[in-house]
Amino acid sequence: MSEWNSLYDAILTGDDKTATAVTEEALEKGAEPLELVNQYMVPAMDEVGKRFEEEEYFIPEMLLSARAMERSLALIQPRLAASGAKPIGRVAIGTVKGDQHDIGKNLVRSMLQGGGFEVYDLGMDVPHEKFIEAIQEKDVNIVCLSTLLTTTMPSMKTIIDNIQQAGLRDRVKVMVGGAPITPEFADQIGADCYGDSAYSAVKLARNLISA
């Protein structure tokens, strides 16, 4: 890791203008798109996650890094697609029906994108059937469900039950998270895992894919 270290630094410091400028320059000079992702962007977001865990970074810093990463990735993605490079996995993510909170969901989305996943963000207050449609139409491997409210926690079970009833449960893993969610709750509703932070979500998603 050396030639495009400034991309790593720009993402780490949340400098989206430098991140996109370096990405454009790197692509013009023939840098391999996948190399930019794996050698600079993924490690940068990994470091962002670590700094968040260690309370050196907080939500504003994480969001700025995520924005820098997403804007750089937007430049790289067409080349990745053209080269036939495959993502680690495909994820559908959303805040469940009745819940308008999305900051945690957005951070998980960004961390997963930065971690090499193709992510379909269904938004917030997502009707249950949208998750089913994403599995059927986007062929996702993982469904991530988020909520901040205790009142909307039961929606997570409903969605998992719906996935089961639709005969799709063996095609996807389900990850749940959000302030009131616990590992015990995840077990009770039949989720495959519980993530307690955006950083841990990437590690968990990688484990789910390799399982």
Binding site: I59, P60, R67, I103
Partner: peptide
């Protein structure tokens, strides 16, 4: 909007 505000700080 909380997402916007968090980035507005910088």
């Amino acid at each position: 909007g909380i997402n916007r505000l968090m980035m507005d700080f910088m």
